[in-house]
């Protein structure tokens, strides 16, 4: 592999863009492509499938052997609201390998005692997300059901192409939320990406059970997501 190829690959990884290194095992030639780049033919299909599964493997095409090494950014979960569900969800998501960040401007909820060892930000979401923006490898879960706190990050998650957007609230709460977002100019197709009521329908009742339902839905979205086209090149 040439140094320039490695530099490109590392630049994508630093920018949290999924990338694949394709090495021709016969010649040793290597090239880098980012998720969403056009790649025709059978090799394109193999690479798309590797991006979805996150698994690296050797593929044989027309007598040639290629090693497809896939580099996916580590997924993050951002939770809006330092409530009871968030306390359990933060721990469960960390165990499942996600980076976790909790954002809640209400200092009565967002206390270090309730969230020991968790990245907790006591700012308004608009400020917190300016410092560290959402991206396509981030799941956004809004659980305060206070429009003043939840609406902005939900809209931001749709704009940034988060792989999962979930919002807690009854069907009625969710319907009025959709009305407000529609008034902001979001199309129904975009709004359909919001999971509300949040979580897989497993009849979850307690905060811990609801956290399981939400985490399972996040994992489902991560492992079955469509290829999201990059909006801009990192280079």
């Amino acid at each position: 592999m040439e140094l320039a190829t490695l530099e490109r690959l590392n630049a994508y990884r630093r920018a949290r863009v999924a990338a694949a290194l394709i090495t021709d095992m016969g010649s040793g030639d290597a090239s880098v492509i980012a998720e969403g780049d056009e790649l025709d033919g059978v090799l394109g299909e193999a690479v798309a499938s590797a991006f979805r599964s996150g698994r690296s493997s050797v593929v044989e095409l027309d007598g040639a052997r290629y090693f497809l090494n896939v580099y996916l950014p580590p997924p993050d979960v951002v939770v809006i609201g330092a409530v009871h569900i968030s306390q359990v969800l933060a721990k469960m998501a960390a165990l499942a390998g996600f980076g976790v960040r909790i954002i809640d401007p209400r200092t009565a909820f967002a206390t270090p005692e309730r969230f020991a060892g968790i990245n907790l930000v006591t700012d308004w979401p608009a400020d917190a997300l300016k410092d560290k923006p959402l991206d396509t490898y981030t799941a956004l879960v809004a659980v305060t059901h206070d429009p003043k706190i939840d609406d902005f990050p939900i809209a931001e998650a749709l704009r940034r192409g988060c792989f999962y957007v979930g919002a807690l609230g009854s069907r009625r709460t969710h319907a009025s939320r959709l009305d407000r977002l529609r008034a902001e100019g979001f199309a129904d197709k975009a709004l359909a990406r919001i999971n509300g009521p949040v979580g897989l329908p497993i009849g979850a009742a307690s905060p811990a059970e609801i956290a399981v339902a939400i985490l399972a839905q996040i994992i489902e979205a991560l492992r079955t997501r469509d290829i999201i086209l990059r909006k801009s090149d990192v280079q």
């Binding site: 095992m25 698994r55 690296s56 493997s57 050797v58 090693f67 090494n69 896939v70 580099y71």
Partner: peptide, 14 residues
Amino acid sequence: TVIETWGSAPRPAG
């Protein structure tokens, strides 16, 4: 780089 594994292997391909 690990490119292929069979059976139980400590580190995955890649």
